[in-house]
């Protein structure tokens, strides 16, 4: 049950998505990845990708135009 943080602040599409995809491979089942983003499109496409992969996803708006995406690896 580890928690990882991925700082994608200031990164434009599709970098956050690509980094998330890569990072998820390092995670064990049950681990949590927190992706920090401020790109409004990534707050839609990163969760969408993670859901299609079957992971648990939650989004939190932490500041004006800044989000944290919680992805729990389930398989």
């Amino acid at each position: 049950m580890k928690e990882y943080r991925l700082d994608c602040l200031g990164e434009a599409c599709p970098i956050p998505l690509m980094k998330t995809e890569k990072k998820m491979m390092d995670l064990q089942v049950g681990d949590m990845l927190i992706v920090m983003i401020d790109h409004s499109c990534a707050m839609k496409n990163v969760p969408e990708w993670a859901r299609t992969q079957g992971h648990n996803v939650d989004i939190e708006e932490v500041d004006d135009g800044e989000w944290e995406i919680f992805i729990e690896k389930v398989k």
Partner: peptide, 14 residues
């Protein structure tokens, strides 16, 4: 979802 540690929210503005 299991517990998570979100960054503390700054007081939000409109």
């Amino acid at each position: 979802m299991s517990e998570k540690t979100a960054t503390k929210r700054k007081p939000k503005s409109s």
